[in-house]
Design a protein around this nucleic acid. Sequence first.
DNA 1: ATACATACC
DNA 2: TACTGGTATGTAT
Length: 870
Amino acid sequence: MENGTALSKGEGFLSRMALNDNKAGMEGLDRDKINKIIMETSKGSRFYENELKREQQVNQRIEKMMLQKAQITEEQLKKAQAQVEKVALELERNRDLSRVIVHVDMDAFYAAVEMRDCPELEDKPMAVGSMSMLSTSNYHARKYGVRAAMPGFIAKKLCPNLVIVPPNFDKYRAVSDEIREIFADYDPHFQPVSLDEAYLDFTDHLEKRQSWPESSLKQQIQHLQEAVQEEKDLSPVLFEDSPSSSPSLIGSEGVSGAAMAVEVFGTSVEEAVKEMRFRIEQKTMLTASAGIAPNLMLAKVCSDKKKPNGQYRLPSTREAVMDFIQNLPVRKVSGIGKVSEKMLNALGISCCSHLGQRMALLSLLFSETAWHHFMQISLGLGSTYISRHEERKSISTERTFKELSKVEEQLSLCRELCDDLAGDMKKEGLKGKTVTLKLKNVNFEVKTRASTVPYAVATVDEIFAIAKDLLKTEVENESPQPLRLRLMGVRISAFVSLDDKKPLQKSIVSFLQPGKADSTGFTQEMHQKLEKKPISDFSIQTWCFGGPPPVHMCQKQEGGPWRIKQKGLEGGQISDQQSFFQRAHAKRLELLAEKSSTQEEGQRENVSVITPIDVHAQNGIESSVEVHKSKASGCLENDIIFSIETHASTSGCGSSVSKSLTCPVCFRQVETTDLNVFNGHIDQCLSTASRKPNQSAYPDSESDLEFDIDHKVAENWNGECKVEAKDLESKRVYPQEAQCSSRNDFDEMVLSISGHNNSMVSKLPQACYDKGSVLICPVCQLTQDTDDLNVFNHHVDLCLNQDVLHELHGQTSSPINPPSVTKSKAVDGGQLLPRQASKGKSKRRDSPSCPCSKRAKGLGPHKTIDKFFR
DNA sequence: ATACATACC
DNA sequence: TACTGGTATGTAT
């Protein structure tokens, strides 16, 4: 221990504190001198001590890694090498050089704005921020080692003449709006990264641009020249020094004296980007730099290359890309920060070519996500499509302050934060279920405490009620010492749609979107195909949410009596596994729906499985749920399709239909025919499906009863049995007679219990599960000829990622054969980008994909599946 | 689901 | 005197 600490202290040269010169305008600085000043200024501070601690943690991580490395055998390495090569080949096969991606970045943005607006600052070293923290520095200041994310007081030590200007975000936002207007002319779908930065896909613009006839350009020039000439003729005096530095630049000043400069740009990418930068400068008097490359990752690196006020294009050839990557320091790649850099450095990796060389090793030392990312970098691959940021996933507010130790003050601050947050949420129309409290003590140690409630919160009081408890718990944990805080923050996540415009379950909702035919989005043809049933006045609209998990996916219940829960009340009933499979099914149906809408012919034997269950009987008279299992030919046992029926009214004339739909998740009647309302209900149901027991999202008028059934009885699950009913409120227990009526498709026993309106279901005992164990892919529904979970997992992954067409053409009997072009996740900058919608006019190919076909979002990566299966 | 760490601007 | 604030995501439990 002591040894290790001493060691890491000795070698731990505080890479965290040292100057980070990975920034334009900071080349060739006297690092040693600068670092010395930084250290002297920081040493002994609480911040410094904490950084030291964290540095040691990183060092320990590295030590661990090196230990692991030492234990790797030749054989393992060889095997890994083979695997790595396979992945590389797959990635290579999907390399897409067809897009022209541009990354634009304003030069020293905040600082530049301030300098523009205050000529006094022109030739001075300056930075925007405060004595505590700087957000940008101008290039003059960078020569002193002053940079963003450096506290002002240290910057002042480095550069005593530094002028620090407080930030003016409203102004930056206004400028940002201006430049974004220009961006939109080149790519209406551009992706802003921050106020001063964006990714644009120039491909489409360039195509249009190509068709600009040369003659038209010439005409334009001529026209302008004539105009200039006219002006000159009218007032020759004003044109003595018309600028003409660039051949195509036509300078002119109108009679009024207003400056008019016209520049004509060609049709190449470079010209287009120059034009855009020119327009930015005209409009804002600020300069921007740009990078042009075949993908986002490269474009980002390129935009840094000619900073400030320059641009760099990386040609779209494999050769150029590989050359470019060769000596590129890994740290330059977005997503590789100081920790990753340090870990890689420890393995002798400092530039991207090393990454490729040591890939086998990396695959053994890092997580799959990590080494796949490294692999992409080493091949110069990155996401090739840009996407507007989708819905936010969290919203938060935090504040740093002078030490705060009094509980009352902490609580009132907490309330203040909640108040702010509630305001922000209201602005955005958000409601969320998870509240996270963030605390940083005076030693810079950060803690987060979260709590998820079954309902969505949005108001101050709601948020504070939760945050306050979290805070109190922490205060109590620390007592009798007080919490000595320097920062507090509150965050809300796990959003729930307020209205129906922001649905949670995208796949399901898109699947259910109101379509041409009926409220489920299904056309009648689709119904016919799916159900092989004629269309009649009694139409069954089919939904598929995934059946019971195959045997291996069921969690064993550890001993004890079998719990029986009231159907529809118990969230735990729909376990995580099930909800996963629901999604898988929904996905499959989504694909199917797409196929059905594009292809008219053919009934699909392997998907048109019908196991309609009428879960209607909640009328309170019959105290049992009737389960009808009717099988169509070719029906697969594990497929479950809930039928949503719009019954012809029994009392009326047959043309009127009842006004309710049955939720396939909670089995309740939803009194609506409005699909949006219904979708909202289902989303709610699905999203609360994994909530804790006794936190029903749909509280029922029935008393909260819990029933225990004897294991032995359950095994004979037919006929009569005794159950114990426990009133959760009064805690009273009384025996009940029950009738086991049926076994439903969730592998649950359905019981009618005398004296209760609702039926109960119970997980069947393990003995029941163990009969006929097969692995059935939840996506393609085919029985898999393996019991190796790894093989199975792999199959499911592939299935989930099948290209829509591959999936739907359905020739391949087993999706284990991966499609040649896979839809992909895109890892870029360490951030997972959502896949592009398959619809739309764009004819672009998809970005290269990780051959493991791991999904970035939605259905979840291997890990998710692994969790279920291990 | 929670906690913590890393990363980006 | 003084080392941010907001968001997303990865990793481990």
